[in-house]
Design a protein around this nucleic acid. Structure first.
Length: 572
RNA sequence: GAUUCAGUAGCUCAGUCGGUAGAGCAACGGCCUUUUAAGCCGUGGGUCCUGGGUUCGAGUCCCAGCUGGAUCACCA
């Protein structure tokens, strides 16, 4: 199957064939030894090392050819460096092919080469590798977008989000700050892992395919296991499995969990995303708040060397301690209304008064959450703990030790969004069963995201789960804040996209098989006939006219077709 | 799901009132031995997202669709 090639792609394939004819393997198998990176050269030359013999590999990102001398920019995983090629050094003898033909004509931007040489500084003051020999390591057959830069100003930037996300590899090649975002993300995850490991907690793995989905309120993805002939769900959370492990006797467990939720997509939501969940026995939510502060402060310092992170227009300071308000306090703070002790009808009146939209399926807890989400959350920029949520919206959290109708739960809000969610975990199996049953009632009332009843989980906590503090942090959300990214797609290598429309493919062989001469077979797709089906949808007379018109337009030096010839293709 | 903006050369984009499709970079052919968004001369490159409609004539106007962005809704 051949794809329609652009002019530039055809030229690159011709270059490839010329290289082969010269005995140059465009995809050699042998190792190319690299003894330095571009970053090391820039950091150390000439104070710490003069680099008399470098051996380095990377991708050609730009070329400036001036007769018998040339400059290229070579890009490796750490950055770019300029390289100087001089014809008579690349080709010391009579034969100048390796410079004149191979380097100047057959290599392209995007090709990967290995080179040896020494480092010097040009008259313009740029650290440069003086190349003494080079070898082609990989020929690139597709032209890259050309991004140019001067004085930190970027020209012709590769910005189309559709292309950037679908072809992340290209995005990574030409947009260096993209690579940096993902390096930072990994640093962030490592920082959290290191923090928790130092505390002695155990990193574990629990099922992604679950017979019942639980631990959160969301619609799941559904799949089927053939051998067991049963429905399985991709997990929406791992909470209930980690708690089973606490029952089993681990004091602290955590998991970086890919979770899946079958819901809308926008700049804060991707159908698959990452959370970390942590459960620690014999602790409560007050203790967990202190841990979160300590951990996120450390993460900021590990990533940026400071607790202050620039996010959009804001500077967010993760330095401990963070502000703490109860849910009722913060609502009173932003609305002036004290809703503590109100019943459902009174809350509806308040919501109407505040112009907060509510609907009849919402119970008391959801209305309070709606008021909070509308009137408070967007205004909380600096990291802030909100504590003591209504019991109705927290079916897995323990009832508050003193406050009726509330649970021991907190969220940290930052930049107007939830950063984490935590509670003193409910370990009373009788209360837990009742809460699940209340959820089933909500489900009947029309709430599509109410939780299901998990008998095995209830059995586990009937054996006894110690008092436990639990925590969930949205890793993608945290990465967005910590890398100053505006969209979740910018912190996921391969965000979910609609499938690409299939491009026109054709087989020249198919056309020749029905009697189309080779010279015409190559042109048919360009003339508008991507496949045999396309061709046969038209009438022979039309095809005859279109092709001869195409021949004239493109000044093809092949004889004009006769109608008779075309009719033969149609097998008449 | 709603509203709205966008889709033109490999990339970034222009395209006036509806009248033969343009620029820069990239590519190709020249010149050029420390240049740097290299420069100079020349050449080629287009399913103007797709399909209908209006019109003598559509990249441009109208309708429908596709893809993406933004905002909203949904999503603790």
């Amino acid at each position: 199957m051949a794809q329609l090639l652009t002019e530039q792609e055809q030229i690159r394939r011709e270059s490839l064939n010329e290289l082969l004819a010269l005995g140059i393997n465009p995809y050699p198998a042998n190792e190319f030894e690299v003894n330095v990176t571009t970053r090391e050269i820039h950091e150390n030359y000439p104070e710490k090392n003069t680099y008399p013999e470098v051996s380095i590999a990377g991708r050609i990102m730009s070329r400036r050819i001036m007769g018998a001398a040339s400059f290229i920019e070579l890009q490796d995983s750490t950055g770019r460096i300029q390289c100087y090629f001089k014809r008579d050094e690349i080709c010391p003898g009579e034969d100048k092919t390796l410079y004149n033909t191979v380097f100047k004509r057959l290599l392209d931007i995007g090709d990967i080469i290995g080179l040896k040489g020494y480092v010097f500084i040009t008259q313009m003051g740029e650290t440069t590798i003086h190349v003494t020999s080079y070898v082609l390591l990989t020929k690139s057959l597709k032209p890259l977008p050309i991004v140019k830069e001067k004085d930190d100003k970027v020209y012709d930037a590769f910005t189309d989000p559709d292309l950037r996300y679908r072809q992340r590899y290209v995005d990574l090649i030409v947009n260096p700050q993209v690579k940096n975002t993902f390096v930072l993300r990994t640093k962030m995850v490592n920082s959290i892992r290191e923090f928790l490991n130092t505390k002695g907690y155990l990193e574990v793995e629990t099922p992604i395919l679950q017979p019942l989905y639980g631990g959160a309120a969301a619609r799941p993805f559904t799949t089927h296991h053939n051998a067991l002939d049963m429905t399985l769900y991709l997990r929406i959370a791992n909470e209930l499995y980690l708690k089973r492990l606490i029952v089993g006797g681990f004091d602290g467990v955590y998991e970086f969990s890919k979770d899946f939720r079958n819901e809308g997509m926008d700049r804060f939501h991707n159908p698959e995303f990452t959370q970390i969940e942590l459960y620690v026995a014999y602790k409560d939510y007050d203790w967990m708040m202190n841990l979160v502060e300590e951990m996120i402060e450390k993460v900021a310092i590990d990533m940026h060397g400071t607790t202050v992170v620039k996010v959009g227009e804001h500077e967010i300071d993760f330095k401990r301690p963070w502000k703490r308000y109860t849910m009722f306090e913060i609502i009173r703070h932003f609305t002036g209304i004290d809703i503590s002790g109100m019943n459902e009808d009174e809350l509806r009146t308040v919501a109407a008064q505040l112009q907060v939209p509510v609907d009849p399926t919402m119970a008391k807890g959801k209305i309070i959450d709606q008021i909070f989400g509308e009137k408070c959350e967007p205004n909380l920029i600096q990291p802030t703990f909100i504590t003591d949520y209504p019991v109705e919206m927290s079916p897995l959290a323990k009832k508050h030790r003193t406050k009726e109708g509330l649970v021991e739960r907190f969220e940290a809000i930052c930049n107007g969004k939830e950063l984490c969610n935590s509670f003193s975990e409910l370990n009373d199996p009788i209360d837990q069963r009742k809460r699940f049953e209340d959820q089933l009632e909500l489900g009947k009332r029309g709430d599509e995201e109410s939780m299901t009843l998990d008998e095995d989980f209830l059995r586990a906590i009937e054996y006894g789960m110690p008092p436990t503090a639990g925590l969930g942090i949205g890793i993608d959300r945290l990465a967005m804040i910590m890398t100053n990214s505006n969209s979740i797609q910018d912190v996921l290598f391969f965000p979910q996209m609609r499938p690409e429309k299939a491009k026109a493919f054709h087989k020249a062989d198919d056309f020749t098989a029905i009697g189309v001469p080779q010279v015409w077979a190559d042109h048919l797709p360009k003339a508008g006939f991507a496949s045999i089906d396309d061709l046969k949808k038209a009438k022979p007379t039309q095809v005859h006219q279109i092709l001869n018109g195409y021949r004239k337009k493109n000044k093809l030096e092949i004889p004009a077709l006769t109608l008779n010839e075309v009719e033969i293709w149609f097998g008449s």
